[in-house]
Amino acid sequence: MKKIQFLNFLILSAVLLLCSCGTVKNVAYLQNSDSINFDKSRFLYDARIMPKDQLTISVNTTTSDASIPFNLLLQSEYTQGRAVSSGSGTLMPYLVDNDGYINYPIIGKLHVSGLTKSECEQLIAEKIRPYMAETENPIVTVRMSSYSVSVLGEVNAPGSYQVSREKISIFEALAQAGDLTIYGVRDKVKLIREDATGKKQIVTLNLNDANIINSPYYYLQQNDIVYVEPNNVKAQNSKIGQTTTLWFSATSILISLTTLLINIFR
């Protein structure tokens, strides 16, 4: 009986060795943070407007009639596309075209691509001021209503995430996606980015290295895609998972045959 138990133990150990694939390395983020100079990271990030962005623009003035032409509501059976004062309905979004322009009421085409939100607000305020009384000082508010990033691969909740603050770091994006799974490769995270001219690039980021905070890719732009590839453990487990039933069936048969042979020749 002891021989049978010992043999069964050896066979089970062999199966476990086949199912195991090594240890997980480089799990911790920002491992060398004590030795990094973060002076380069001392700046406030401002997202820049890009083609295909949707902007919500509202104008407020001391005299409500002065802002009416510059606040257009979404067309409905009630408004029928009328211009009304802000705060009385849903403002119409402005789509930035491929050349970086929006078509703004009265002013016409305005080039806004490449501007920050505050720069765009200042530009619009300057353009509309001549159409108002000299005592008016219009307050313009611009919001990027289509700011989103996507996180794919070895994360707990992959998907596309809306960014209401118009600012998000790669760690914040991964937190939105439930963080990396234990199988995610932390030192080879891929960032896919398209610039204002349509040029694409793929950048590899190392989340283990604290220098990422000084990287120009630390903050994500709108429509960025973050991809976390699986490590070798996940790849091998995937192969094993496809044949797990066969392995256990074969193991069960082998144990049964071994037990039978020992009983016969005992």
Rank of each mutant, 00 (worst) to 15 (best):
D97P: 12
I4A: 15
S145P: 01
W247L: 15
A133Y: 06
I253C: 09
M1F: 05
K109L: 08
V140S: 00
Y147R: 00
S146E: 01
V228Y: 04
V151K: 00
I225A: 15
T259H: 14
I213C: 01
P93T: 13
Q176K: 14
S118V: 05
A210M: 03
I102V: 13
D34H: 02
V112I: 15
G184Q: 03
W247A: 15
V149P: 00
I68N: 05
E119W: 03
L72D: 02
N231R: 12
D46S: 08
S41F: 09
T251I: 07
S41Y: 03
L30D: 02
Y227C: 09
S113K: 00
P69Q: 02
T251S: 07
T62E: 10
Q5K: 14
V203N: 14
T141E: 02
Q5G: 07
V96E: 01
S238K: 12
N60R: 07
Q162N: 03
A175I: 07
S113W: 00
G81M: 05
L95S: 09
D34C: 00
I102M: 14
I240Q: 10
A175Q: 03
K200H: 13
N26K: 13
I106E: 13
K2S: 12
L205I: 10
M144P: 00
I107D: 04
S113A: 15
Y217G: 04
V96C: 11
Y104G: 06
V203I: 10
K25A: 11
L191F: 05
I36A: 03
G100P: 02
Q221K: 09
L12R: 10
I264Q: 10
A47H: 08
P130E: 13
S64V: 06
A177L: 03
M132I: 11
